[in-house]
Simulated scan of single mutants.
Amino acid sequence: MNLDGETNLKLKQALESTAFMHEDSYYRDFKALIKCEDPNTNLYSFVGTLDFEQNLYPLSPQRLLLRDSKLRNTEYIYGAIIFTGHDTKVMQNSTAPPSKRSKFEKQI
């Protein structure tokens, strides 16, 4: 709700090529490369690919959890962090809170 104003749950799914990985042992020798667009403010688009086992898999917004997202109906996830700090879409969309001072207080 904080991101787009909607309270409905959004379905997120793993890539079919990595969905079988349910245990820590799968990730001991896991090697992949993520190539993606530069950080931007558009919450509803993401262009990127996952290079895994010499195959390219497209990454879309349905595959991403944005910062401050809440997980529901999920026991655990494995994931990769793509952008951090001020490069995240949520941080780039944040604005300063409005002043609660009256016009009269501002004039004084």
Rank of each mutant, 00 (worst) to 15 (best):
V90N: 10
T74V: 01
S69P: 09
R72F: 03
D4V: 07
L11Q: 08
F83S: 00
E105C: 06
K70P: 02
L50D: 05
R72N: 06
G79S: 12
S69C: 08
R63G: 00
R72I: 03
S17F: 00
L65G: 03
A96Y: 12
L71K: 00
G48C: 12
G5N: 10
D29P: 03
Y76F: 14
V47D: 01
L3V: 11
I34V: 15
L59N: 07
F52C: 01
F83E: 03
I34F: 10
F30M: 06
Y27A: 02
P39D: 09
S102L: 14
F52N: 01
P97A: 13
T88C: 05
L64T: 11
K70V: 14
S94V: 00
L65F: 06
L3Q: 13
D87P: 00
Q54C: 08
Y26E: 11
L71N: 00
P98N: 13
D87C: 10
L50Q: 10
E75S: 10
P61H: 07
A96M: 14
N8F: 08
P98Y: 15
D68F: 13
A19C: 11
S94F: 09
A19K: 09
L65M: 05
S17D: 01
K89R: 15
P98S: 14
R63P: 00
Y78I: 01
G5I: 08
L3H: 09
K12P: 00
L71I: 00
V47N: 02
L15T: 00
